[in-house]
C-alpha cells in the first residue's frame, strides 16, 4: 500500500514528486534499517538465553554479552538428562493438551448454539461469557485457589486445567461465533432436506467447516496454557505436579549460582511454544487479524 504508483504527469505538487523519489531511492534502505533494528532488539533476549546455555559460567561472568567460545554442550545435556525437567515437561504437556481440548470442544459447542439457534436467553448467555473477558484469570486467582482447595484438587493437574478451560472460553466463543454465523443458511437447509438433523449438521458440516477457526483458537489456547504461570503457582507450587514455567523458577532457586544451567533449562522450556508458533505462525497471526477484521 505504501508504494503508490501514480502517473507523474497528473501529480500536481512538485513537493510530492520529490517525496516519492526520496522514498524510492533511499526510503527503502531506511525501512530495512529500522526493520533490522527492530528484529535485533526482538531477538536479542531470546538469543541471549539460547546461546547462554551453550556457554559455561566463567564465560558468562567474564563476557556477559559475548558469544559461546568454545561451545559447551554439557548444560543442555545435563538438563535433558535430569528427571526434574522431564517431570515438569510431562506435566506441561498434559495441562496444555487437556486445556486446549477442553476449550476447543466446549467452546465450539457453545458457540454453535449462540451462532445458529434462536432462543430466549441467548443474549444473556452471550453476555455471561463476554463478561468473562473483564475478569482475567490473574485477578480471580485467590478465590480460585480457595475453590480448588475445597474441591480437594490442590496439587493436581485438573485443578489447573478446569479453571483454565473456564477462563479460555470467552475468547474462544467471541472468535468462533462470527465464524459459525458466516456458514450460509443454505448449507444447513440443504443438509436438512437430505435428512440431516441439527446435531448431524453440527457434526458433519460445522466441525469440518470451522476447522480453520478451531485451529487458530486451539493454538492460542495451547500457547497460553503452556506459558501460564500464576494459576499453577497457586495450585501446584513447587511439588511434583509443577509445570515448566514453575520448574524454571524452582530450578533457579535450586541452582542459583549456575547461570549457564538455568539458561539451558529456560531455553528448553520455551522451545515447544516457539516450535508450535513457528509451525502455525500464519494461523496465529491470521487468527488474531481475523479477530479484528471479523
Amino acid at each position: 500500500m505504501a508504494v503508490v504508483t501514480m502517473d507523474p504527469s497528473v501529480d500536481p505538487a512538485p513537493a510530492t514528486t520529490r517525496n516519492r523519489r526520496r522514498k524510492d531511492e533511499w526510503g527503502s534502505p531506511t525501512t530495512y534499517f529500522i526493520a533490522l533494528l527492530v528484529i535485533g532488539v526482538t531477538l536479542g533476549p531470546v538469543a541471549y538465553i539460547v546461546l547462554g546455555g551453550f556457554r559455561d559460567n566463567s564465560q558468562i561472568t567474564d563476557h556477559p554479552a559475548g558469544l559461546p567460545h568454545p561451545w559447551v554442550f554439557s548444560n543442555y545435556a545435563s538438563v535433558l538428562q535430569s528427571s526434574e525437567f522431564w517431570n515438569d515437561f510431562t506435566n506441561s504437556v498434559i495441562v496444555a493438551v487437556f486445556t486446549t481440548a477442553g476449550i476447543v470442544v466446549l467452546g465450539l459447542m457453545a458457540s454453535y448454539v449462540l451462532a445458529r439457534y434462536t432462543f430466549r436467553g441467548r443474549g444473556l448467555m452471550f453476555g455471561l461469557f463476554a463478561s468473562g473477558l473483564m475478569f482475567p484469570i490473574s485477578v480471580a486467582v485467590t478465590p480460585l485457589y480457595l475453590l480448588i482447595k475445597q474441591l480437594g484438587m490442590l496439587f493436581t493437574l485438573p485443578g489447573v486445567i478446569l479453571p483454565q478451560i473456564a477462563f479460555g472460553l470467552p475468547t474462544t466463543i467471541i472468535i468462533l461465533v462470527p465464524f459459525l454465523k458466516a456458514i450460509p443458511d443454505e448449507i444447513e437447509e440443504a443438509s436438512a432436506m437430505d435428512g440431516c438433523s441439527r446435531l448431524g449438521f453440527f457434526l458433519r458440516m460445522v466441525v469440518p467447516l470451522a476447522k480453520p477457526g478451531l485451529l487458530t483458537t486451539g493454538i492460542l489456547a495451547f500457547v497460553a496454557a503452556w506459558n501460564s504461570y500464576l494459576l499453577p503457582l497457586f495450585i501446584l507450587g513447587a511439588g511434583d505436579t509443577a509445570t515448566l514455567p514453575l520448574g524454571v523458577k524452582n530450578f533457579t532457586g535450586e541452582h542459583s549460582v549456575d547461570t549457564a544451567q538455568i539458561l539451558a533449562f529456560t531455553s528448553l522450556a520455551m522451545l515447544p511454544a516457539l516450535l508450535v508458533f513457528t509451525l502455525f505462525e500464519r494461523r496465529i497471526v491470521g487468527g488474531l487479524q481475523g479477530a479484528v477484521k471479523g
Binding site: 526482538t42 531470546v46 538465553i49 514453575l246 533457579t252 529456560t266 531455553s267
Partner: peptide, 23 residues
C-alpha cells in the same frame, strides 16, 4: 519480519523474565 517481531509474544513471561533478569 512479521514472524520475528511477533516471537516475544509467544515466549512465556517466566522465560522472558529469567532472560531479562540475567541481562
Amino acid at each position: 519480519i512479521r514472524v520475528l517481531v511477533f516471537a516475544p509474544w509467544v515466549v512465556s513471561e517466566v522465560v522472558a523474565g529469567m532472560g531479562w533478569n540475567e541481562m
